[in-house]
Design a protein around this nucleic acid. Structure first.
Lengths: 338, 338
DNA sequence: CTGTTAGCGCTTTCAG
DNA sequence: CTGAAAGCGCTAACAG
C-alpha cells in the first residue's frame, strides 16, 4: 500500500482531482468506474489516488445515495455457537460482494432489540438480517423501508424474505434412522418452543406414521432445557418407560441427557441408543461419539446474506423463503436393536 | 414505537423542525441535548420527532463530524470459538456505550485483511480492534489516523493500545498444579507460534524452576496441531518417555491428545494425568472432565472495546497494554501422583 | 468526454 | 435562547 503520510486531514476526491489536474466529477467517474473518462486521465487519477492514499468517504457516498453498503445483522447472542456460525456465513458472503456487516445483539432483551434496530436504521443499511424473537424490530425496519431477511423462523408467511432450517425433516430423518434400526420404543426429549420444537415433534411423528409404528405419548417429553428438574425428568423417562432409544431434539437437552448418562454409568448404545439434534464439537469427543443431526448454520447465514443482497439489487422481486437441510451424522451412540 | 407510516422519504431533522415550528438548528440542539433550548420547544420537538418516527441519519452526522460511532473489528474467523467470544465481548461493551460494531474477517488471508482495513477506513470509525496476524493492516489504519487496539499479541511494544491473555501465567499455573500434585515427568505439547506458544513454554519452564525441578527437554514437543503425524508424535511421547502427566498447551493439541487417549484406551488420570490449555465445552462433557486453563476470551473483548472507547474519548492518553488472567479449572483428568 | 452545479442531512459557528 | 448560513465529501444531472 503506497502513499499517505500521517497527515491529519484525510485525502478527499478533490485532492486527487487537483493532483491529477481534473475536476472532481471526472475523478469520481474514474475512481468508481462508471461514466466516460479518457484512458489517459483515468490512469493519472488512479495513480494519484494511489499515491495520495485516497480512501473514499463512505458517509458522503451514503448521504448522497441514500443507502449504504452495509447490511445489519441482529442476533440474540454472537457468542453462542449458532450466532457465531450464522454471523460467519453472513459476513463471508457480504464480504465477497463488498458489503460490510454491522452486528448487533440483544441479550435476549426486547428493548435492546428495538434499540439495535434503530441504530441500524440510522446507518441506512442496504438490508437487515435478523433472527426474530419479537416481531417489533422487523416491523420497525420494514416501516422505514428497510428490507428485512428473517432467519430460522418457520417457513415464512411469505410477506418477507426468510431462510429457515428444515427442523421437521431433520427430526424425521433421525427418527427414521432409529426406526430402521429396529427401535420401536423411542423416547423424545424436545423443547417447548412454538415453532422450532413443534416442527421437530412433527418430524418425529411423521417418521413413526410412515413406518406405521405408533408413537407412545408417554415417551414424549416436551420440556425447556433450563426448566428445573430436567435431569430428573430424563432419568424418570429412562427408568419408567425403558425406551430402547432416546432422541434429544435440542442441543441443550442432548447435553443434559449425556450428563444423565454419565451420572448413571449408562454408555450408549448399550441399554439405549442415543441421537441428538444439533451436532456439536463435544459429540465427537466423547466416547462413543454421538450420532447427531448436523445443522448447516453457516450455510444458513450465507443464504440469508444472499437473499439480502438479491433484494438490495431488486427491491421489487417477490419474497423468497428458503429452507436448508440438515444431515444426519452417524457415530457410535446408536446401534441396531438385536 | 410510535409514528412514521410507510412513506418513501425518510423523516429528516427539517421535517421535525417544521412540524414543531422551529429552525433546524434548534431541533438539532433539542434532539441531541447540547446547547440551549427552551423547555417548551424542546418538548414540542421531542414529541414531533417521536410522532414522525424520526431516526437521525448517521452518515450526515459522520460526514459533518468526521468520525462515526462505529468501531471496526478485524478477526481472522468469526465462526471460531475465539473469534465469536471476542466479538461478543466487544459488541456488548460497544452497545452499552451506544457504539456500533462492524465486523470483518479475513479467511487468514493477507489481502482480505488489507481490504477489510480499507473498507473500515472508509467508514471513518472511531477506532479499530484487531487480532494481528500481519502488521500491515494496523499500520495502514494508524497511518490514516485511526486508533488501533491490538488483541492477543504479546504485551504490546507500547506503541499502541493492546490487550493480551497472560499466556505465560496460564501455563505456569497449570504446571505448578501438576508439580504440586507430585508430578515430576510432565510432558508438554505446545505449538510453534513465536509469541503465544513461546510464552506458554516459558510459563512451563518457570514453574519447573520455581519448584526446582529440571524440565526434561525430551518431554517437550513443539508441534503445530495441523502438522502431519501429530497423533504419532503424541503416542510416541507417551510410550517412550512415560510421563506421569501430559500438558497440552493448545486447544487443538488437547483435542488431538484426547483422541489419542481414546484410541489407545487410556483413561486419565490413570496412567497419565491430563491438563489442557483453553477450556472448551467438550472438556466437561467427556469422562472424566478435563482439567483446563480457561481463557476469559469474552472479557478480552470487553477490555479491548473499553480501550478503544477510552482512546476515542481522549486521543492523547498514553497507550495502555492490558493483560487478562486465565484461571485453572480442575476436573477429573488430573490426580496426585501416589 | 469533461466541468459546473446543486444538493444529501446534519452540526456548528456566529449574529441577533 | 434562536435562526441563518456555511459546509462535511461525494454523486448525478446537465450543459458544454
Amino acid at each position: 500500500v503506497s502513499g499517505g503520510d500521517g497527515r491529519a486531514r484525510p485525502v478527499t476526491l478533490a485532492d486527487v482531482a487537483r493532483d491529477a489536474g481534473t475536476s472532481v466529477s471526472t475523478a469520481a467517474r474514474a475512481l468508481n468506474g462508471r461514466g466516460y473518462v479518457s484512458p489517459r486521465r483515468r490512469e493519472r487519477l488512479l495513480a494519484a489516488a494511489d499515491r495520495l492514499g485516497y480512501v473514499p468517504n463512505a458517509s458522503a457516498r451514503t448521504l448522497k445515495q441514500r443507502t449504504s453498503r452495509v447490511v445489519g445483522v441482529l442476533v440474540s447472542d454472537v457468542g453462542s455457537d449458532f450466532g457465531a456460525r450464522l454471523a460467519a456465513g453472513i459476513e463471508q458472503t457480504l464480504r465477497e460482494a463488498d458489503y460490510r456487516m454491522v452486528l448487533a445483539s440483544d441479550d435476549g432483551d426486547r428493548r435492546q432489540q428495538l434499540h439495535g434496530a434503530r441504530a441500524l436504521l440510522a446507518m441506512r443499511p442496504a438490508g437487515v438480517i435478523l433472527t426474530p424473537v419479537d416481531p417489533a424490530p422487523a416491523a420497525l425496519l420494514a416501516r422505514h423501508g428497510v428490507d428485512v431477511v428473517e432467519v430460522d423462523v418457520a417457513p415464512a408467511d411469505g410477506a418477507r424474505d426468510g431462510v429457515a432450517l428444515d427442523n421437521e425433516r431433520g427430526a424425521r430423518e433421525a427418527t427414521v434412522y432409529l426406526l430402521a434400526n429396529g427401535h420401536r420404543r423411542i423416547a423424545l426429549l424436545v423443547g417447548d418452543d412454538e415453532a422450532r420444537d413443534a416442527a421437530r415433534l412433527r418430524g418425529f411423528r411423521a417418521a413413526h406414521e410412515a413406518a406405521a409404528v405408533a408413537a407412545d405419548e408417554d415417551l414424549i417429553a416436551r420440556i425447556g432445557s433450563d426448566a428445573l428438574g430436567v435431569d430428573a425428568r430424563i432419568a424418570g423417562l429412562l427408568d419408567e418407560e425403558r425406551p430402547s432409544a432416546l432422541f434429544a431434539a435440542t442441543g441443550p437437552l442432548a447435553q443434559r441427557a449425556w450428563q444423565v448418562f454419565r451420572a448413571r454409568g449408562i454408555r450408549p448404545p448399550q441399554a439405549v441408543s442415543f441421537v441428538a439434534f444439533d451436532d456439536a464439537p463435544w459429540m465427537q469427543m466423547v466416547e462413543p461419539g454421538v450420532t447427531a443431526v448436523a445443522l448447516p448454520t453457516q450455510e444458513l447465514g450465507r443464504r440469508a446474506a444472499r437473499l439480502a443482497l438479491r433484494r438490495a439489487d431488486d427491491p421489487t422481486r417477490p419474497p423468497t423463503s428458503d429452507l436448508v437441510e440438515p444431515t444426519l451424522v452417524v457415530r457410535g451412540s446408536t446401534a441396531a436393536l438385536a
